[in-house]
């Protein structure tokens, strides 16, 4: 169940809005932040909050790219596979990530830290090849840079809530 302190502001926002459905993405993102991903339980919670059916939430949750319906790691690495990044070495970035983390696209590392998700152009073409980790963009990437970023994240972050 959701804690009161999370629920209350959401309920307040919903009450304030003329059309609560406008908030569905925000609610999903909020629940996703809370649970780590939009779990089945979260879908039902969202449906209850917004007076929608779980199906209606699911229709949107599976539609959008940044709503995770499956467990993800502490850090979700969205590697840009837009044409500019592709031209500037997306393959080598991805391969380096695979090698370094030992996972394939969509998978999460054993320790629950990282998930790699290729993503449509993230809008950092001037910094290509680029990637987005939990909303923050990094680029232009080189293998060394990647190593640095990942190591720093791993060392600075609190241990992940849910290891796989």
């Amino acid at each position: 169940m959701l804690s009161e302190e999370l629920l209350e502001p959401l309920q307040k926002r919903i009450a304030e809005t003329d059309h609560p459905r406008e908030l569905v993405v925000d609610i999903m993102l909020a629940l996703q932040n809370h649970h780590g991903y939009l779990s089945d339980q979260a879908v039902e919670e969202a449906a209850r909050l917004l007076d929608m059916t779980p199906l209606e939430i699911e229709e949107l949750a599976t539609f959008y790219d940044f709503i995770y319906r499956e467990p993800v790691g502490r850090f979700v690495i969205h590697v840009c596979d837009g044409v500019v990044c592709w031209m500037n070495g997306y393959d080598s970035v991805l391969n380096h990530l695979f090698k370094k983390l030992g996972i394939k696209p969509g998978e999460t590392t054993e320790d629950g830290f990282f998930t790699i998700l290729p993503t449509a152009c993230i809008g950092y073409c001037d910094l290509s090849p680029a990637m987005l980790i939990n909303g923050r963009a990094y680029g232009p990437l080189t293998p060394e840079k990647i190593d640095g970023i990942l190591d720093r994240l791993r060392s600075e972050a609190p241990p992940p809530r849910m290891a796989r």
Partner: peptide
């Protein structure tokens, strides 16, 4: 308004649907 992230949301009418909490 934050999107859930889909290219098609950039299309005007799709964006309106997206804001209304429907499939874009």
């Amino acid at each position: 308004h934050r999107s859930g992230g889909r290219y098609i949301c950039g299309e005007g009418t799709a964006q309106i649907n997206a804001i209304m909490g429907m499939r874009a």
